[in-house]
Amino acid sequence: MERKSYSAGAVKMSFWFMEFRKVVSLLAEGKSLDEIKELNKEQNIFGAPTTLRSEQIYSTVAGRVRTLDESFCSVFLESDVASQKLFALVAAMAYDTLFFDFVYEVVREKMIIGSNSFADSDIRIFFKDKQLQDEKVAKWTDATLNRLGRCYKTMLFEAGLTDKGKDERKILKPILDPVMQRWLEDHDMEACVSALIGVR
């Protein structure tokens, strides 16, 4: 899995599961991402409130889809909704290295030590560490970091990985579908498997 430079772009993003599913379905019907982009321009296929938002959704969802080998489409479409949400989460993690690191370093670690929940203080510690490690992150404001933390919590909740606790989020350890797990392992995404199920 390719590591990209850290980005705070997630503050403008959402989990966009239904939109992700729509793009995968259109790809499975034989459309290319470029054709889906045109279709979105003409028909606002995501039902976005503005053209700008519509383009933003397409750009992010297409970026996430591109991080996965196209052979995932058939596995995704044959999976149940819980597995599809985990696939969408894996794509979001592969697309955004900082988000991946959060899931890997905070959520996975909590599962490993058996403490199955994380608090806002864990999120703050994570960002503080990243600010020491990375000049780019060091320049981000507290407001940006707070928004990023909220976004990460929302994505994990919508993917079914946590509950919606106020100050502390309970981690709902998923049971990976064996077909999905094998696909991830066959495509050099073992780190995502470890992050999701909490293993070393």
Rank of each mutant, 00 (worst) to 15 (best):
V193N: 04
L184P: 03
G114T: 06
K136P: 02
Y58K: 01
R150T: 14
N44F: 03
E2T: 08
K37I: 00
A48S: 09
A82F: 06
T97H: 00
D163P: 12
A88D: 02
F102Y: 13
M13R: 15
D167W: 12
L33S: 04
E70W: 07
T162F: 01
Y95M: 05
F99N: 04
D142I: 13
A28W: 08
R169M: 12
I171P: 07
R169S: 15
D167F: 15
I36G: 01
A143R: 15
R182M: 06
F72D: 04
L176H: 10
G149H: 03
M111I: 13
E29I: 01
D34W: 05
F126N: 10
V75N: 07
T162N: 01
N40T: 14
K4R: 09
K153A: 15
F15V: 08
N116I: 04
A92V: 02
E19N: 05
E135P: 03
N44T: 05
T50P: 08
F102N: 08
G198L: 05
S7L: 00
F157Q: 12
K31W: 11
E2A: 08
T97F: 01
F127G: 11
R169D: 09
R200S: 13
N116K: 07
R169K: 14
Y104T: 08
L172H: 09
L27D: 01
L132A: 14
T51M: 07
A195S: 14
M189R: 09
I57E: 00
A28R: 11
N44H: 02
P49I: 03
V61F: 01
L68K: 05
K128M: 14
D167V: 14
F87W: 12
